[in-house]
Design a protein around this nucleic acid. Structure first.
Lengths: 197, 197
DNA sequence: TCAATTAACATACGTTTCGTATGTTAACGA
DNA sequence: TCGTTAACATACGAAACGTATGTTAATTGA
């Protein structure tokens, strides 16, 4: 066990680079992070970085993909436990909002990534939005939700969540209270999608 | 008339700098814009820039303030013509979306500014959001809209508009069709805010 | 009216940072 | 065993930003 294969060591340096970059991006932001500095913090040099990731943007893409994968898993886990499809959908939106509150996700995905790649991170094609869209399409087919364009509305919900997370995290105001108020507002907006009884 | 006062000339260079920067930021993005290049394009040097705006960020803030002021005017003009407060509110949201489709606004306000100043441009305190919140508060007081937190929901609508604009402008897909689909989705979501009949 | 100060810029410089080009070492294949 | 390639480190060049330092012209005050 104390003996590591060559392939394992390579993977270790890649993972170490990724983890250190993720930490640095989250705490200082992508633009403010010097590749010299944080590679040194990882005990390596920029040479290793450019070998594994090609460019600073390539590194950011790798970090985004890692985070997106985690987000996808957590959303899936949370919403799968709900009893009805609609409640599952609602839970997915709420959980999305809670995830967006984590500083790492807000800073890297919602804040910096947008400026680098204009649109939603095309890199990982935003797992969260895709899943939201799929859930919406099912609900529309089942007649629970009015016939809207699922892709459009999924994106809009993503926007709701994004902005709400920034609002909640604003320096003034109580985050807990704001989270509750945001979840309430989210509920009202989502209710508009339902078919009238 | 051919005689310009000193103060006028100073204002002219300031305006010229601002206009050139706005153009450059919109077409190449804030990060990709070299201060040497675009000041030269304006027939000046970085010296003038740092004298008037202090820093590159200061220049961006000035550009944002200019755009925000225009956005505020156009929103006000559009919504004031509507017959009822609710329709005025709805119109404001729709117009907001249409404005967000303009490349200049999308690139500078929605895309780049967020990465530089984490939150919504605190610089000009987003006139659009503030007006949206005020309109919401009136509608709640009048009993037209359910009692939600106006600040939270105003921000969420801002998020809807932002994401929708990016979605509409995606390279594939027909922008005209997508705009219609987005406006439809927006209507459904907003309908959730209304009191049930 | 004239000297001193300040505003409005231009120019020059130093620092930081990114990407690339060039080693270097160790493993792997023929 | 020898050539090749992967996995890095090191060195170099090219922006780009901010600042420090001119320079000129207007303005102020005595």
């Amino acid at each position: 066990m104390t003996r590591r294969s060559r392939a394992q060591m390579i993977e270790e340096t890649r993972a170490k680079l990724l983890a250190t970059a993720r930490q640095a991006f989250a705490s200082q932001g992508y633009g403010q992070t010097s590749m010299d500095d944080f590679t040194a913090a990882a005990g390596l040099t920029r040479g290793a970085l450019y070998h594994h990731f090609g460019s600073k943007e390539g590194l950011l893409i790798a970090v985004i993909e890692q985070i997106e994968a985690e987000v996808g898993d957590r959303l899936q886990t949370a919403s799968a436990a709900e009893p009805t499809p609609w409640l599952g959908f609602r839970c997915r939106c709420r959980t999305y909002l809670e995830l967006a509150l984590e500083p790492e996700i807000r800073r890297i995905i919602l804040q910096d990534a947008r400026a680098i790649f204009g649109d939603v991170p095309q890199a990982a094609q935003s797992v969260g939005i895709a899943a939201l869209q799929a859930a919406l399409e099912e609900l529309i087919a089942a007649g629970t939700v009015q016939p809207v364009h699922a892709g459009a509305v999924a994106r809009m919900i993503y926007g709701i969540v994004t902005e709400a997370s920034f609002w909640i995290a604003e320096p003034d105001g109580d985050p807990q209270a704001r989270l509750a108020q945001a979840l309430d507002g989210l509920d009202r907006l989502l209710a508009g999608l339902l078919h009238q009884a």
